[in-house]
Design a protein around this nucleic acid. Sequence first.
DNA 1: AACGACACCGCAATCGTTTGCGGAAGTTGC
DNA 2: GCAACTTCCGCAAACGATTGCGGTGTCGTT
Lengths: 337, 337
Amino acid sequence: MKSGLVTIKDLARELKISASTVSRALKNHPDISEATKKAVHELAEKLNYQPNAVALSLKQRRSNTIGVIIPEIVHYFFSSVISGIEDVAYDAGYNVIICQSNERYEREVANSKTLLASRVDGVLVSISKETEDFSHLFNLRNNNVPMVFYDRIVPGLEADQVIIDDFDAAYRVTKHLVDSGRKRIAHFAGPQKLLIGKHRKDGYIKAIREAGLEVDEKLIIEADSFEKARLAVMRLLNEKRDFDAIFAVNDLTAIGAMQTVQKRGIKIPDEIAIVGFSDGRFSGITDPTLTSVDQHGYEMGSIATQMLLKRISAEDDTYPFETRVLNADLIVRGSSI
Amino acid sequence: MKSGLVTIKDLARELKISASTVSRALKNHPDISEATKKAVHELAEKLNYQPNAVALSLKQRRSNTIGVIIPEIVHYFFSSVISGIEDVAYDAGYNVIICQSNERYEREVANSKTLLASRVDGVLVSISKETEDFSHLFNLRNNNVPMVFYDRIVPGLEADQVIIDDFDAAYRVTKHLVDSGRKRIAHFAGPQKLLIGKHRKDGYIKAIREAGLEVDEKLIIEADSFEKARLAVMRLLNEKRDFDAIFAVNDLTAIGAMQTVQKRGIKIPDEIAIVGFSDGRFSGITDPTLTSVDQHGYEMGSIATQMLLKRISAEDDTYPFETRVLNADLIVRGSSI
DNA sequence: AACGACACCGCAATCGTTTGCGGAAGTTGC
DNA sequence: GCAACTTCCGCAAACGATTGCGGTGTCGTT
């Protein structure tokens, strides 16, 4: 049915005045007499009139909506980013449409299409792991859709962006391990086509070199999930590789590693230290608790949204792109002491 | 600027034909000649024409969008519900607008208003912990917005709903503890004004009674967070209450309890068994691993969405409301063996 | 009496798209 | 040669709201 919703015309008909007058009365335009205003407001209240945001969007050519493309909200980091986004957007009177790419390129392209079709006023984007072709994003750009990238940015696409200093954080993680006496530190790396994966690995390498240690390629393994970590650890152990620490590209990977190590009867952190990345809600509940890096997801979401709103409301849309680099905090816990 | 986006009129002007013809050509209307269709399609492709979904919504009086009101997406359960929702909606060509209430009543009311204003075709609702006044939801109902409630439903509001059998699940959890020989089982309960809190407690009580044990009110504590669990455990221990198991209303509460118990040097599960609820991604990584109840969030989201889509496309909007009760699976792990 | 000032309100166009209806050509049949 | 079809396309209204412009009616002033 969907017949219900009362429109401005309904009010006009009921009061025997024009729709224009109702519209003006509702926003207290000075041209309208107090008596009319009162009548309109009262009827609107009584009939529970809600302005049709769709009609408004069409007329104003702005939807007061921002779109978000996000890889997977099941991760603590990303869902806290969303909270940061929502809070800022909400306060500014914006709605948020969230699209999950599920880490899939195709889905991400579809997402960018629907957001374009919905005429969102701007988008916040973090690309999927699969994404290598960025034409859908350039397409948004070409259509003058304000854009801010967060966390996973696109190399070669100039835009506002907010990231954390992955390189520095990874460097500090590794240095922390070095300082605690570890000599043979393995790295479970993320996909090297994602900048964050590359930066974290580079930070790791810098710290290793700086400490005068050897970078052993056999100790650098691309493994970025719970399951891959299990396999990687088993391989390392079966090959009898010598290592006394693991720096994993994210917490789940670290935890997968931790479990597998423990199942072999190896003590953490005595024999092997483990550090994760992107501190989640649960890094405090493993045994031992997991040293990790707090990525400040909420803050990232809120800052990205502020940047986007600024870009949206800028008359001069050519002011230079801005890159905000957030500090990530190393949180030392039981797994590396 | 936001000038860019090409419209049907732009295509018409370029090809010196009318907008009507362009519109029909784009959807292969038989009235249009092949030559014209070809020209239109080619130009549309070239100029990267994207139909304006806003105009469409206004014209069709349907937005192909469904709204979701959700308490907090940082929880694994809720974010997997969203994934289930998105997948089904996506396949049916619907967009999803997600609104977090952050467990706050006021925010939930605001959410329902924006969804109404956005003229979503239907809404999926799970109410916040604070919500006691349901007039905003009755308001949606009065405006003929199709609605499906999931997980946290509204007593007294007849509607489609999908829930899990909390009572039965809690009963089985408690029975499992009884069967393993526990006699003094504490319950960390959720807010009793939420049905799920009440049902879980009732299931607990039934199992206790059925086993011929005594229901000790001192062992039933309203505690539904990590922190509250810590305090509750400390109080129980300080008061030297006798108990050999804790059934917590959710996993985080269980984990808070587990930690606090362990810090006192008490062995789990030997001296105290612990069971959680709403199995998250991390119940497998505590030490010991946590016995819990898998609530099948993804399935709940996908079923709720299917029910909503069915309701939306129903010509006859008076077919009886349906309640789907999903089974929850008890997953026994190390914390209770 | 005539004119200007003011208060109040309606007409109509607009945003982008769809769609019923009608109309101008061209084709066929007899 | 003319009626009757086809084929193909455009006009205009509609969805709900906003807004520039103009119109009506009532006063007061000279």
